[in-house]
Write a protein that binds this DNA or RNA. Structure first.
Lengths: 238, 238
DNA sequence: AGAGGTGTTGCGGGTTCCCGCAACCAGTTT
DNA sequence: AAACTGGTTGCGGGAACCCGCAACACCTCT
C-alpha cells in the first residue's frame, strides 16, 4: 500500500512520515509532494488510494487538489490535516466530497495518538473522521441566527473579491435587491454593526470582509481559489 | 547566558531549540513561551537579553511583544523568525526598533546553517542581520511608482478596519479630500484597476483590501493589532 | 381554504464614495 | 525672480451603496 503526503512544511512533513510509519505497518511506500499541483501529478501517476493532505499551501491549495483527484478517482481516501479549523475549508470540502468516499479532517495541534488513530481510521478502514474541534465549529452553526447559508456565502465570496452588487446579481442569477438583502443578513450575522459603538459609522462592505477574515469564515486560500473561478466565469461571459 | 524562545508551533520550537544548542555553546538555559503575552512575562521575570521570536502567534503577535519588551529593556537582542516575508511585519518592526539595539529577521525556510549563523550574529555578536529574501522585498519598494508611503499605509490600515473617509480624516488629521487622494494613489499602487479588464467595475475599497492581503502588504495579525489601537483611540476620543 | 412564515423583487431616497477641476502652499530648480 | 513640482484642500456631480416599504410567490400548518 502506497501513501501520498502533500505537505509544504518540512518539519510537519517529517513528523507526519514518522507517525505514518508507526501507525501503518501495512504501508509499503511514502511519496511526498510539497504543493497541490505536484500532489495531483503524483496521485495520477502512482494510482494512489490513500492521501494525507495539508490544506494551506502556496501554489495550489489542498481543496483544489482534492477536487481534481476525486474527480478522477472518487474512491481515493483523503485525510486533510490543517493548522486551522476554518469554516471556509469545511464548506469547500463539503462541496467536493464524493458519495461513499472516505475522508477525514484533523488539526495539526492534535496529539500524536489522535493523529495515528485518524490515519488508521480513514486510510485503512475507510471511515469518516472529523476532529472534535471542527465538529464543535459545525455545531455552532446550527443556530439560524448566526449560521451563514450557502447562498449568503456565495455572495460573501463575491463581495470579498471586490465585485459590485450588479455584477454579483448577474453572476449568481438574482436581482439586485436580492443581493442587497443577502448582504444585509451577512452584515447582521458577521456582526458588522459594531458591537459597542452603535453610532460609529463604518464602511459595511469592508467591515464585512474584515470580520469574515477574523472569524475565519473565509481565508486567503479560499479567496485565491475563488478568484480563479471568477476569472474563468468572466472569460466565459463574453 | 539565557535565551528565550517565543514560538507557538511545537515542531518549529523543537527544531529551534536544537539549532540553538548547536550554535550557542555559551548558552546556559532555554526558556520557552508559546505566545507573545507569556513571552513578555518571561522576559520581564528572567531579565532576558536574547530572544528568538516568532511573528505569527495567536494571542499576541511578536511585534507587539517586542515593542513591550524593548520599551522596558531597549538593549535586548531579538531575532525574529517567521514563515513569511510580509511587508507589514517589516513596517511594524522598523517602527519599534530602538537605537543601537541588535535584531534580525530570518525566514523559517532558511537553511539550518543560515539560521545558526543568524543566531550567533544577532544574539551573541549583537549584529543586525536581515534575510536576503526580505532585503529583496525592501529593494523592490524603492521605486516611487509602487512604494507605499507611511502616510498611505496608515490610510490603508484604516480602510482595512472599515473606517469611512470622514473618520479616517479625523483620526489622521487630514482633510476629507486628502484622504481620498491617498486612497486614489493606493488604488493605483495596489493595482485595483483590474489589470486585464479595464471596463470591469469593481468596488475599489474592498478590492484594495483584497489586493493588499494578497501582496502581503498587510496581514491579519497586523490588522488585529491595528484594531486594538483603533479601539484605544475611539475610547480616548469622547 | 385560510393564516402565517420565508424569500424575491421593484421603487424611491438618503448617504457615501470616487474623482475631475482648480486654487493654494512649500520647496527646488533654472 | 520665475517656473516647476508635489502635496493639500474645497466644490460639485455622477455612480454605487444601504435600506425602508410594499407587493408577490411559495411552503407549511391548522
Amino acid at each position: 500500500m502506497k501513501v501520498l503526503v502533500v505537505e509544504d512544511d518540512q518539519f510537519h512533513g517529517a513528523y507526519l512520515q514518522d507517525a505514518l510509519v508507526e501507525a501503518l505497518p501495512e504501508m509499503t511506500e511514502i511519496i511526498q509532494s510539497s504543493d497541490g499541483e505536484a500532489g495531483e501529478d503524483e496521485a495520477r501517476r502512482g494510482a494512489i488510494e490513500a492521501i494525507v493532505m495539508d490544506l494551506q499551501m502556496n501554489r495550489r491549495n489542498g481543496i483544489e487538489a482534492a477536487r481534481a483527484i476525486w474527480s478522477e478517482r472518487p474512491q481515493t481516501r483523503i485525510l486533510f490535516w490543517s493548522n486551522y479549523a476554518d469554516e471556509a475549508y469545511l464548506r469547500g470540502i463539503a462541496q467536493i466530497v464524493p458519495e461513499d468516499s472516505a475522508y477525514g479532517y484533523i488539526l495539526k495541534t492534535a496529539s500524536r495518538e489522535r493523529l495515528k488513530l485518524a490515519l488508521r481510521a480513514v486510510l485503512i478502514e475507510g471511515q469518516i473522521m472529523v476532529d472534535r474541534e471542527i465538529q464543535r465549529l459545525q455545531k455552532s452553526q446550527t443556530s439560524p441566527r448566526t449560521r451563514i447559508e450557502d447562498s449568503e456565502f456565495a455572495v460573501l465570496i463575491d463581495l470579498a473579491l471586490g465585485l459590485q452588487d450588479k455584477l454579483i446579481a448577474e453572476r449568481r442569477s438574482m436581482s439586485l435587491r436580492t443581493v442587497q438583502n443577502r448582504l444585509l443578513s451577512l452584515y447582521e450575522k458577521l456582526g458588522v454593526v459594531s458591537e459597542l459603538d452603535e453610532d460609529l459609522a463604518l464602511n459595511k462592505r469592508v467591515r464585512a470582509l474584515n470580520r469574515a477574515l477574523f472569524t475565519r469564515t473565509i481565508n486567503i486560500e479560499i479567496l485565491d481559489a475563488a478568484q480563479r473561478d471568477l476569472d474563468k466565469w468572466l472569460a466565459s461571459r463574453r
